[in-house]
Protein backbone atom coordinates (compact mmCIF):
# COMPACT_ATOMS: atom_id res chain seq x y z
CA UNK A 1 0.00 0.00 0.00
CA UNK A 2 2.88 2.33 0.77
CA UNK A 3 3.91 2.11 -2.84
CA UNK A 4 0.56 3.55 -3.96
CA UNK A 5 1.02 6.61 -1.80
CA UNK A 6 4.39 7.56 -3.25
CA UNK A 7 3.41 6.96 -6.87
CA UNK A 8 2.56 10.09 -8.86
CA UNK A 9 -1.20 10.32 -9.57
CA UNK A 10 -0.82 9.86 -13.31
CA UNK A 11 1.02 6.62 -12.83
CA UNK A 12 -1.74 5.35 -10.57
CA UNK A 13 -4.25 6.07 -13.30
CA UNK A 14 -2.05 4.22 -15.73
CA UNK A 15 -1.75 1.26 -13.40
CA UNK A 16 -5.55 1.08 -13.18
CA UNK A 17 -5.60 0.83 -16.95
CA UNK A 18 -3.01 -1.92 -17.05
CA UNK A 19 -4.69 -3.78 -14.19
CA UNK A 20 -7.94 -3.92 -16.11
CA UNK A 21 -6.03 -5.54 -18.95
CA UNK A 22 -4.79 -8.44 -16.84
CA UNK A 23 -6.29 -11.84 -17.67
CA UNK A 24 -7.49 -12.34 -14.08
CA UNK A 25 -10.43 -10.01 -14.79
CA UNK A 26 -13.42 -12.30 -15.18
CA UNK A 27 -16.28 -9.90 -15.74
CA UNK A 28 -16.82 -7.68 -18.73
CA UNK A 29 -16.78 -3.92 -17.90
CA UNK A 30 -20.49 -3.72 -18.76
CA UNK A 31 -21.26 -6.40 -16.18
CA UNK A 32 -19.16 -4.57 -13.58
CA UNK A 33 -20.93 -1.32 -14.41
CA UNK A 34 -24.36 -2.87 -13.81
CA UNK A 35 -23.06 -4.61 -10.71
CA UNK A 36 -21.64 -1.41 -9.21
CA UNK A 37 -24.53 0.83 -10.31
CA UNK A 38 -27.53 -1.43 -10.73
CA UNK A 39 -30.43 0.28 -12.48
CA UNK A 40 -33.99 0.13 -11.17
CA UNK A 41 -33.38 -1.76 -7.96
CA UNK A 42 -36.41 -1.97 -5.76
CA UNK A 43 -39.98 -3.15 -5.58
CA UNK A 44 -43.36 -2.16 -6.94
CA UNK A 45 -46.63 -2.87 -5.20
CA UNK A 46 -47.34 -6.46 -6.18
CA UNK A 47 -51.05 -6.06 -5.37
CA UNK A 48 -51.41 -3.22 -7.89
CA UNK A 49 -53.44 -4.40 -10.89
CA UNK A 50 -51.11 -2.68 -13.35
CA UNK A 51 -48.05 -4.41 -11.89
CA UNK A 52 -46.77 -7.80 -13.04
CA UNK A 53 -44.35 -9.71 -10.81
CA UNK A 54 -41.97 -12.44 -11.91
CA UNK A 55 -40.11 -14.49 -9.34
CA UNK A 56 -37.63 -17.07 -10.63
CA UNK A 57 -34.68 -19.03 -9.33
CA UNK A 58 -31.70 -20.95 -10.65
CA UNK A 59 -31.53 -24.16 -8.61
CA UNK A 60 -27.94 -25.03 -9.49
CA UNK A 61 -26.48 -21.77 -8.19
CA UNK A 62 -29.10 -20.86 -5.63
CA UNK A 63 -29.88 -17.51 -7.27
CA UNK A 64 -33.22 -15.80 -6.83
CA UNK A 65 -34.51 -12.98 -9.04
CA UNK A 66 -37.60 -10.78 -8.77
CA UNK A 67 -38.58 -8.59 -11.70
CA UNK A 68 -41.62 -6.32 -11.72
CA UNK A 69 -43.19 -4.24 -14.46
CA UNK A 70 -45.79 -1.48 -14.31
CA UNK A 71 -47.95 -1.17 -17.40
CA UNK A 72 -50.11 1.83 -18.35
CA UNK A 73 -53.54 1.70 -20.04
CA UNK A 74 -51.99 1.64 -23.52
CA UNK A 75 -50.05 -1.52 -22.78
CA UNK A 76 -46.77 0.31 -22.43
CA UNK A 77 -44.31 -0.60 -19.69
CA UNK A 78 -43.76 2.63 -17.76
CA UNK A 79 -41.68 1.29 -14.91
CA UNK A 80 -39.61 -1.78 -14.08
CA UNK A 81 -37.86 -2.82 -10.89
CA UNK A 82 -35.75 -5.78 -9.93
CA UNK A 83 -34.14 -7.40 -6.96
CA UNK A 84 -31.63 -10.19 -7.44
CA UNK A 85 -29.68 -12.19 -4.92
CA UNK A 86 -27.03 -14.01 -6.85
CA UNK A 87 -23.82 -13.60 -8.79
CA UNK A 88 -22.67 -10.49 -10.63
CA UNK A 89 -23.87 -11.78 -13.99
CA UNK A 90 -27.36 -12.45 -12.66
CA UNK A 91 -27.55 -8.95 -11.18
CA UNK A 92 -26.24 -7.36 -14.38
CA UNK A 93 -28.64 -9.42 -16.55
CA UNK A 94 -31.69 -8.38 -14.55
CA UNK A 95 -30.53 -4.77 -14.30
CA UNK A 96 -30.13 -4.62 -18.06
CA UNK A 97 -33.48 -6.37 -18.57
CA UNK A 98 -35.33 -3.69 -16.57
CA UNK A 99 -33.56 -0.99 -18.58
CA UNK A 100 -34.60 -2.60 -21.84
CA UNK A 101 -38.24 -3.33 -21.07
CA UNK A 102 -38.94 0.21 -19.90
CA UNK A 103 -40.79 2.13 -22.61
CA UNK A 104 -41.57 -1.02 -24.58
CA UNK A 105 -45.05 -2.43 -25.08
CA UNK A 106 -45.97 -5.74 -23.48
CA UNK A 107 -45.73 -7.50 -26.85
CA UNK A 108 -42.33 -6.01 -27.60
CA UNK A 109 -41.02 -7.04 -24.20
CA UNK A 110 -42.09 -10.62 -24.86
CA UNK A 111 -39.73 -10.71 -27.83
CA UNK A 112 -36.69 -9.98 -25.66
CA UNK A 113 -34.27 -12.89 -25.82
CA UNK A 114 -31.65 -14.08 -23.39
CA UNK A 115 -29.14 -14.14 -26.23
CA UNK A 116 -29.53 -10.36 -26.61
CA UNK A 117 -28.71 -9.87 -22.94
CA UNK A 118 -25.80 -12.31 -23.09
CA UNK A 119 -24.43 -10.57 -26.17
CA UNK A 120 -24.72 -7.08 -24.69
CA UNK A 121 -22.93 -8.16 -21.49
CA UNK A 122 -20.47 -10.50 -23.29
CA UNK A 123 -21.34 -13.27 -20.87
CA UNK A 124 -19.11 -16.36 -21.04
CA UNK A 125 -20.79 -19.74 -21.71
CA UNK A 126 -20.79 -20.71 -18.01
CA UNK A 127 -22.84 -17.60 -17.24
CA UNK A 128 -25.39 -17.91 -20.03
CA UNK A 129 -27.95 -19.31 -17.61
CA UNK A 130 -27.97 -15.95 -15.80
CA UNK A 131 -29.32 -14.26 -18.91
CA UNK A 132 -31.86 -17.08 -19.29
CA UNK A 133 -32.96 -16.39 -15.74
CA UNK A 134 -33.54 -12.72 -16.66
CA UNK A 135 -35.57 -13.72 -19.71
CA UNK A 136 -37.64 -16.11 -17.59
CA UNK A 137 -38.20 -13.32 -15.06
CA UNK A 138 -39.54 -10.97 -17.75
CA UNK A 139 -41.80 -13.71 -19.12
CA UNK A 140 -43.07 -14.51 -15.62
CA UNK A 141 -43.76 -10.83 -14.90
CA UNK A 142 -45.61 -10.41 -18.20
CA UNK A 143 -47.70 -13.52 -17.67
CA UNK A 144 -48.53 -12.41 -14.11
CA UNK A 145 -49.69 -9.05 -15.52
CA UNK A 146 -51.80 -10.77 -18.21
CA UNK A 147 -53.48 -13.04 -15.67
CA UNK A 148 -54.33 -9.99 -13.54
CA UNK A 149 -55.77 -8.17 -16.57
CA UNK A 150 -57.82 -11.18 -17.64
CA UNK A 151 -59.33 -11.65 -14.20
CA UNK A 152 -60.04 -7.90 -14.15
CA UNK A 153 -61.98 -8.02 -17.42
CA UNK A 154 -63.83 -11.18 -16.40
CA UNK A 155 -64.75 -9.47 -13.11
CA UNK A 156 -66.17 -6.57 -15.08
CA UNK A 157 -68.19 -8.82 -17.39
CA UNK A 158 -69.55 -10.63 -14.34
CA UNK A 159 -70.90 -7.35 -13.11
Amino acid sequence: MALWRILPPKLIELSKYTLSKTPCLYYHPKVLDHYDNPRNVGSLDKNDESVGTGLVGAPACGDVMKLQIKVDDNGKIIDAKFKTFGCGSAIASSSLATEWVKGKTVDEALKLKNTDIAKELSLPPVKLHCSMLAEDAIKAALSDYRIKQQSKTSDKSDK
Binding site: L55, V56, A58, P59, K83, H129, L133, D136
Partner: peptide, 22 residues
Protein backbone atom coordinates in the same frame (compact mmCIF):
# COMPACT_ATOMS: atom_id res chain seq x y z
CA UNK B 1 -27.27 -33.28 -12.14
CA UNK B 2 -29.19 -30.20 -11.06
CA UNK B 3 -29.88 -28.27 -14.26
CA UNK B 4 -28.72 -24.67 -14.38
CA UNK B 5 -31.60 -23.23 -16.31
CA UNK B 6 -34.56 -24.98 -14.72
CA UNK B 7 -36.36 -22.12 -13.07
CA UNK B 8 -39.60 -23.78 -12.09
CA UNK B 9 -39.00 -23.69 -8.37
CA UNK B 10 -41.68 -23.68 -5.75
CA UNK B 11 -43.00 -20.10 -5.76
CA UNK B 12 -43.60 -19.97 -2.04
CA UNK B 13 -40.08 -21.15 -1.34
CA UNK B 14 -38.58 -18.50 -3.63
CA UNK B 15 -40.70 -15.87 -1.90
CA UNK B 16 -39.40 -16.99 1.46
CA UNK B 17 -35.78 -16.84 0.29
CA UNK B 18 -36.35 -13.43 -1.27
CA UNK B 19 -37.82 -12.07 1.97
CA UNK B 20 -35.04 -13.62 4.04
CA UNK B 21 -32.38 -12.00 1.86
CA UNK B 22 -34.16 -8.65 1.98
Amino acid sequence: CIPEEKTSLDHEFLMKIMEKNE
